[in-house]
């Protein structure tokens, strides 16, 4: 052993033995690491929550979009909206060379039909055909007209017959009979 090695050994023992003789401290606690499975599970759970939230938001957006078409899903309000649209369409026709307001009103009505159909589908009580009958109370003529125009459009009637080209469809409310104003009707059986 060289002089350096002997000196090194003695010095290391002199110094380090004293340090090593000190009390041994408590071992530091080891916190378990989060496992990969837990991470994936957590991420999967978070993803599921996000997907469900997305579906809910999408459903809400469809409902809002449907309401935004007229401002309300109420058929009575819809009837008023159609009346307003007819006025607008008349003005458009007057300012252009287009004949009739059928296409103009039809496009507006088809928007409402699709919106109401989607809303009804998401509410779980509607007709998925999207014919505007999802609300089912039938209190508005507007609904019926919307369906009719929508079907006509699908047939691509770009040139409607001229037989009544000057007649403009009206949306006046149907007359309502007052109570007790008509005599009772009796129908006799045919021989």
């Amino acid at each position: 052993m060289s002089e350096l090695e002997r000196e090194l050994e003695q010095e290391l023992h002199r110094v380090l033995d004293a340090v090593a003789a000190r009390p041994i401290p408590l071992r530091r606690a080891v916190h378990p690491r989060v496992g990969l499975r837990a991470l994936v599970g957590g991420a999967g759970a978070a993803l599921a929550v996000k997907v469900l939230t997305g579906v809910a938001v999408a459903a809400a957006a469809v409902t809002v979009a449907g309401a935004a078409t007229t401002g309300s899903l109420n058929p009575a309000v819809w009837g008023q909206a159609v009346s307003d649209q007819v006025v607008k369409c008349k003005q458009q026709v007057a300012n252009s060379s287009q004949h009739g307001i059928g296409d103009c009103v039809s496009s507006f009505a088809s928007q409402h039909g699709a919106a109401v159909s989607s809303a009804a589908r998401h509410n779980g009580n509607g007709n998925p055909n999207g014919n505007g009958q999802a609300n089912g109370n039938g209190s508005s003529n507007g609904n019926g007209n919307a369906n009719g125009h929508s079907k006509d459009k699908s047939k691509d009637h770009t040139a409607p017959p001229k037989t009544s080209s000057t007649s403009i469809p009206t949306f006046d409310p149907e007359p309502i009979d007052q109570v007790n104003t008509h005599p009772p009707v009796t129908i006799s059986p045919e021989p």
């Binding site: 090695e5 000196e7 090194l8 050994e9 010095e11 290391l12 002199r14 110094v15 380090l16 004293a18 340090v19 003789a21 000190r22």
Partner: peptide, 29 residues
């Protein structure tokens, strides 16, 4: 003892060595 160790010329010299060389010396001697 910790202060004594820190002040030791030999320990101070070992600290100036590359860690693997110092470790080899300590493990051996």
């Amino acid at each position: 003892p910790a202060v004594v160790a820190e002040r030791s010329v030999m320990v101070q010299a070992l600290k100036k060595l590359p860690p693997k060389q110092a470790a080899a010396l300590v493990l051996r001697h």
